[in-house]
Nucleic acid binder design. Structure first.
Lengths: 139, 139
DNA sequence: CGGCAATTTAGAATCCCTCTAAGTTATTGA
DNA sequence: TCAATAACTTAGAGGGATTCTAAATTGCCG
C-alpha cells in the first residue's frame, strides 16, 4: 500500500542510517514500518516474522531493535518491569498505558504539555521526558 | 500526603493497612520508612536487611514490597527494563533518572505541571501520571 | 494452650534478554 | 569478477531479576 511513497522503502531507510541491508533487517523493517505506527515487543515481532515465513532468530530481533533504536528509527518505551516496547513513532509524544491489557497507545504530542520543569542538576542535561498516563477500568 | 500523623512507627503503619505485623515486615518497614524518603530495589533492601542481621529471604522482600505497594505505603517506579524501584514517597511527584548511574531522584510535585491531558478513552480512568526526566552527561 | 490461616522460606522455575563462538553474507578493492 | 575482510546472524548457553511451589513456621483467636 505504502511503498509508493518516495522514501519509505525499507532498503532506503536502512541505507540512510548506515545499516547494512541484510535479508533479516529488511524483513523486520518492513514488518515494523509498512503499516502505520506500532508498539511491539521483541517477542511479538519475532512471532510476526515467523508467521510471515521470515527465517530470523530471536537474538537478531533483539539486536535489530536496538540498532534501529540507536539509529533513531525507533524509540524504546518502558512501562512495566521486565518488558520493553519499541515504538515506530519517534516524534515527541507520550503514552496511554492500559494496565489491564498491557496495550500502549500514543497520545499526540500537542495534547500534553509539561511545564515548570526544574533545572537539571549541574553536569547533566535532559535526554528525554517520558510521560505515561496509566489507565485502569473506569467506574 | 501519605501520613499526617506524627507517629510513624512500623507497627502502627502495618496495623493501619491491615497487614499482620510479622518480624520480617516490621524490620523491612523500619528500614524503609525510618530515615526519610528512599528509592530502593528488592535486592538493595534485602542487602540492607542482611547487613542489619535481619533474617529474611529475598522472596519475602519481594512479597513485602508488593504488599506495601498494594496497600499504598509504597509506589513502584519503572525506569529501566528488568529492574523495579520502590519509592517511599507516595505523594504526587515525578522523577529525575540518571541514565549513567541508575540513580532515581524525586522532583517535588509543584515543579512539574502536566497540562492538556486528553480525556481517557471511554470505560477507563487515569490511575496515575508518571513523568520521568531522563538525564545524561552534560556537554 | 490448640488449631488454623497467614506467612515465610529455600530452591526450583520462569521470563526476558545478552553473550559467545562459530558459521554466513555483504561489501570492498585489486 | 572474485577473493579477502569485516559485518552480520545464529543456536544455545548464560545471567539477572522475579515468581512459583510446597513444606515449615508463626501470629492470632478463642
Amino acid at each position: 500500500m505504502s511503498d509508493l511513497r518516495p522514501y519509505s522503502g525499507a532498503l532506503e531507510r536502512l541505507r540512510r542510517v548506515g545499516l547494512r541491508p541484510t535479508r533479516q533487517r529488511l524483513a523486520l523493517a518492513r514488518l515494523l514500518f509498512d503499516k502505520g505506527h506500532r508498539h511491539v515487543t521483541a517477542e511479538q515481532l519475532h512471532g510476526e516474522a515467523v508467521a510471515a515465513a521470515v527465517r530470523v532468530s530471536l537474538a537478531t530481533v533483539y539486536n535489530t531493535l536496538h540498532q534501529f533504536t540507536a539509529a533513531g528509527l525507533l524509540s524504546e518505551v518502558v512501562v512495566e518491569p521486565g518488558r520493553s516496547y519499541f515504538d515506530t513513532n519517534t516524534d515527541d509524544h507520550h503514552h496511554f498505558y492500559f494496565e489491564k491489557t498491557g496495550v500502549l497507545q500514543d497520545i499526540p504530542g500537542d495534547h500534553v504539555v509539561v511545564k515548570q520543569l526544574p533545572e537539571p542538576p549541574p553536569g547533566t542535561e535532559i535526554r528525554r521526558v517520558d510521560v505515561i498516563v496509566r489507565l485502569g477500568a473506569g467506574t
